[in-house]
Amino acid sequence: MKTKFKNLNREISVLTALVVMTILFGIINPVFIGSDNLTDIINQSTIYGLMGLGMTFVIVSGGIDLSVGSAFALIGVIVSKLSVAGMPPLVVILTGLLIGFLLGAINGILISNMKLQPFIATMGTMSVFRGIAYVLSKGMPILNVPTQFRNTVDGIIAGNIRISIIIFAFFAIIFHVLLKETKFGNYVYAIGGNEESARLSGVKITFNKIMIYGIGMMGTSMAALVQIGKLGTGEASAAQGYELNAIAAVAIGGASMAGGRGGVVGTVLGAILFSALKVGLIVSGVETFYQYIATGLVIVIAAYIEIIQAKLADKKGMKLVKKEKKL
């Protein structure tokens, strides 16, 4: 029981921060804790949240993916074209996810087969994907995505629940189970924790890395699909800088940039906290310029808390060692 609590330490502190923040913003402006506003916060967290889910896999494996923002735009352009051309929504979604997997797999191949540094490899594809998006759309936005598609990914059911939230929850559960309960998930942690040990233990590094980046990018695909549903337009210039927000959600959620640590629950909470902060600052009447500063500070503080917690855990570990000696 105690160990379970220890493992959830980070998630609990993000949750606490979220609650404290909600109360503070609620005091400043009661509108913030209105049910409409709270739903809105969750709503706004779906895009970065979905991207963050995939980024969690990549970061836990010790990598980074800077190309997700561009891939987002490219997938958006393709799926809106397909949808406008009359393809049925479900087929569009599956195609979008498949394209995402392939784009991610390209990153994976560059990183594992060709041994490029993840940072450089995905910085390269970041530019390439963006370029392809411009080429395909000829720089023009793709307008009038059919309502049928838009309703499928972002319609409202059961009173006032957005489908995009259900999709986010569904993806979060799938990604969580994949990371925590399967062999693949354990390999992701092992590769991030010590790639060489994993290799010597019989883990197929190349194959698994391709899967990590491929599956990771499927989160971004879904985010792009949801965005098209929300806006009804696909654009090559979309999602500039989104990769940093996705990384921020993962970092706030407590994943270690060095790899080997992190989890889906943390990322989901991180994404919600990120969006709550943005909405809260707007509701409190803070100017846009200051919002950048505030979000940046939150990321830095979150990273620092991670360090402090790691130190405390070490101390605890030492304590356990001494106990072990006594046994």
Binding site: V177, E181, T182, K183, N186, Y187, Y189, A190, G193, N194, E196, S197, A198, L200, S201, G202, V203, G260, R261
Partner: peptide
């Protein structure tokens, strides 16, 4: 090369045999 220092005893010990203790793909 032998261990993943930041991971648990369990995860280190079972690293080579996860594929042998699966139940419909779940550990």
């Amino acid at each position: 090369n032998g261990i993943v220092a930041i991971h648990s005893v369990e995860n280190n010990m079972l690293m080579s045999i996860w594929n042998r203790i699966l139940n419909y793909g779940i550990i």
